[in-house]
Design a protein around this nucleic acid. Structure first.
Lengths: 223, 223
DNA sequence: CAGCCATCTGGACTACAGTCCGCTTATGTC
DNA sequence: GACATAAGCGGACTGTAGTCCAGATGGCTG
């Protein structure tokens, strides 16, 4: 679920632009008070996360800061992971659009500068690391606040499909279980993993190591 | 911490046999009542986890079933993750010993049948998957019950060191950041990841995909 | 055996995530 | 403008992880 909340007018839209057309039916209008509360919550959450850390802010505190009841907060965002996801929504969407429509090597580029799938995959890993490391606290909360959250949110499905498609393309007809291998490629991009490893080795080494693994995989797959 | 509790007589012993000698000082004797309670808790926990699932058993329930107070439970095992770790202790230790001292290709073998580091690494991944998939509920609890738990427990350090050593050996003097890459290799072995991917693709595909990634990495590293 | 004290005990207590449901209010209709 | 009704609201409530500390107890020492 990468839409900014669970019940707003955009609810039901798939997270990825390439799926935008699927469910255009009946965008139910959002009531004025609902809209007011929604933005109040998001602003309050951003404020609190900024001043104390993401870890140290309770849902009660957010509700109080926003001046709404707890029930409202939870009905709107489902749980803590959903709230984090909503806050990340814009950044995430932007990255997804660059991947789908942007310039090479991250995006498909133009006909005359089409990048290789391998280049696109490496570019994806770098861009994703930029995104995740910049907002690590939030991403981590969105992935771990409830068990299994990472694999349920729509964004993960998007990354997974993207990686699987590129792997299949790179293998060029080889018998490769692209779906399953894509999960393995995404595993070291989990926020929990990044958090632990970055604090041990620093961002640069983590970036380099992740790229090494992906690059060697691509080399073997293309052969 | 792979010892079976936090305060018992073995506390302070490092988890891996190759570190056993480091801290032999003052194994404080465990009081009889403490020992009784410790095994009561472990038995109660095993019983409850077996009958309901690991997810659906609260610490209160375990304390009640064991006939001890909550304070005792938490002082002994730290938190839910620690309790799970204690329950896994024996199995984990056994695997660690096979790795350090057992027959090839998982262990170092004898002088005349010494396996290659690549073979040992593949054997490790297979053996670890056997272990983790067999006890997935418990392993998952031990890794996720508290945030960052996976990377704090001694067992992870052991697996990491083992993988890093094998990678370094396999690269045969190449300039390889074995420590950082070892983390990336271990990422798809996280219980949370296994849980999600196995329920999507099944054990066989997950095993195959993980081995594919490791194998391609080894091929590139050795070259 | 008596006394001392470190260790251990257990349940009351806090804080937090998440649920529930009776009440309020915005909005479309006549 | 009044009404009907669906949508939304919020705070009381529940269940759980984890903390704390006053008192009990086991095990050493003389």
């Amino acid at each position: 679920m990468s839409a900014s909340d669970l019940t707003g007018p955009q609810s039901g839209y798939a997270s990825a632009p390439d799926e935008l057309l699927i469910l255009r039916t009946s965008p139910p209008k959002e009531r004025a008070d609902a809209a007011r509360n929604r933005s109040a919550v998001l602003e309050a959450a951003a404020r609190l996360f900024g001043s104390r850390g993401v870890e140290d802010v309770s849902m009660d505190a957010i509700a109080a800061e926003a001046g709404v009841g707890k029930g409202t907060l939870f009905r709107r965002f489902g749980d803590k992971a959903g709230l984090a996801t909503a806050l990340l929504d814009e950044r995430e969407r932007e990255l997804q659009e660059r991947i789908l429509f942007g310039p090479a090597p991250l995006g498909p580029g133009q006909i005359d500068d089409a990048p290789s799938p391998g280049d696109r995959l490496r570019a994806f890993v770098e861009a994703y690391l930029d995104y995740a490391l910049e907002h690590l606290g939030l991403v981590r909360m969105s992935e771990t606040a409830s068990p299994g959250a990472r694999y349920r949110i729509g964004a993960y499905r998007f990354w997974h499909r993207h990686v699987a498609l590129l792997l299949a393309e790179a293998s060029n007809g080889g018998t490769l279980d692209a779906d399953a291998i894509a999960h393995a490629v995404l595993a070291p991009l989990a926020a929990e993993h990044l958090h632990a490893v970055v604090s041990e080795h620093g961002e640069d080494r983590v970036r380099a190591a992740t790229l090494t693994v992906v690059t060697t995989l691509l080399a073997a797959v293309a052969a």
